[in-house]
Simulated scan of single mutants.
Amino acid sequence: MASKKEKASAYWKENIKYLTILLIIWFLVSFGAGILFRENLNEFRLGGFKLGFWFAQQGSIYVFVILIFIYVRLMNRLDKKYGYDE
């Protein structure tokens, strides 16, 4: 059986992995879609607005809120996996 310290270390390692993945997604959506790939995305329209503009103004915020809910769900599973849920 794993010690308490090993269990906590594995928990934080997995937590950091989730955070890294979610932050990369957020960066790609906010900076990538809103700034770097704006010109390419502006060829498409969403709700009458150019897609690059939409991502810069609203899309990245929506994605950020969705990522918060995903993180909560992942952390609830992680807490149960390592026995930290109450």
Rank of each mutant, 00 (worst) to 15 (best):
K80C: 02
K81C: 11
K5L: 09
I21A: 08
G32D: 01
K13W: 09
G83Y: 12
Y11V: 04
K80V: 14
F31P: 01
L78T: 04
F53S: 09
S9D: 10
R77D: 13
I21Y: 05
L78D: 03
Y62G: 00
T20V: 12
Y11K: 06
D85R: 06
L41T: 06
G52F: 07
L36W: 15
V29E: 00
T20A: 14
A10D: 10
M1I: 06
F69E: 02
A10G: 00
K81E: 13
Y18D: 08
L67W: 05
K81T: 12
G83F: 13
G48Y: 11
I70T: 10
G83W: 13
L46D: 05
Y11G: 01
G83I: 14
K13V: 08
K80R: 15
I66L: 15
F27Q: 02
V63F: 03
Y82D: 11
A33Q: 03
A10W: 04
I61A: 15
I66W: 14
Y84H: 10
A33G: 01
Y18C: 05
I16V: 13
G48L: 12
L23A: 07
F44N: 03
V29L: 01
Y84L: 11
Y84Q: 02
L22V: 04
W12G: 00
W12Y: 14
V72R: 07
Q57S: 12
V72D: 01
I66V: 15
N15A: 11
F44P: 00
R73Q: 04
E39L: 07
T20H: 05
S3T: 15
Y11N: 06
E14Y: 02
D79C: 12
A8Q: 08
K81W: 00
N40H: 11
A56N: 12
I35F: 10
Y62E: 01
V65G: 04
Y82R: 13
V63M: 13
F31Q: 13
G83M: 14
S3D: 06
I24R: 01
N76L: 10
D85I: 11
S60G: 13
W26A: 03
L41Q: 07
E86D: 15
R73M: 05
E43K: 14
A8H: 03
A2Y: 07
E43Q: 15
G47D: 07
F27D: 08
R38V: 04
E43I: 10
I16N: 05
L74Y: 09
L78N: 07
Y82F: 15
F69N: 05
F69H: 03
W26E: 10
Y18A: 07
N15S: 09
A8G: 01
F69M: 10
K4E: 02
R45N: 14
F49L: 15
R45L: 10
F31C: 04
W26P: 00
I25L: 09
L22A: 09
N76Y: 07
Q57A: 14
S30E: 11
I35M: 07
G83Q: 13
W12R: 12
I68Q: 02
K81F: 02
I68Y: 00
Y11S: 04
I24E: 02
G48D: 05
Y71L: 06
R38K: 15
